[in-house]
Amino acid sequence: MNLFRLFGDMSHLASILILVHKIQTTRSCRGISFKTQALYVTVFVSRYLDLFYDWVSLYNFFMKVFFISSSCYILYLMKMKFRPTNDPSIDTFRIEYLLGPCAILALIFHYKFTVTEVLWSFSIFLESVAILPQLFMLQRTGEAETITTHYLAALGAYRAFYIPNWIYRYWTEDIVDPIAVTSGIVQTALYLDFFYVYFTKVLQGQKFELPA
């Protein structure tokens, strides 16, 4: 563990807490893409199967359990508790265009041809693009509640923090994980447009609005 990864994980944790807080306090999941949230459940479940056979640390164990359970809880909030506030008609990104290519990529690029390793690769690839339905929705509506933008900023920062972590691990442990690194760079790059508006508008106290 190093500070970069710790900051990344804390940022990831914060993003989920911000999202749950937003849904609970506004009693609404308006502006949140159900498809993106469902993709995150897929990501966590397919990646953390090693919970059942591989022990890393107590920290690692609890974080994995937290990510799986909190992402399922968010789906519950969106589909059951606050269902009327979820508007599927603006959540129109075709996720089969993400699932298919990620599955193919996972079959080509993996560290070992076993079910769990291929699923692990799949989850890494899928995570890198899972935010697209959400960003697509933001693009369509052209605006977002401030709290939603804080959620997205924390979520984007998480993988960005992992990049210096990978550089650090390369120097100190001589470890390189090419699948995670390339996907992580793609994942972070997808947020660049968002970050630009977030830093120049939201953090200056203005509303998040995309130019018409």
Binding site: R5, S57, F67, K112, E117, N165, I175
Partner: peptide
């Protein structure tokens, strides 16, 4: 059966 790469990150 060990992983070729350590999956110790989240």
């Amino acid at each position: 059966e060990g992983n070729p790469v350590k999956h110790d990150e989240l």
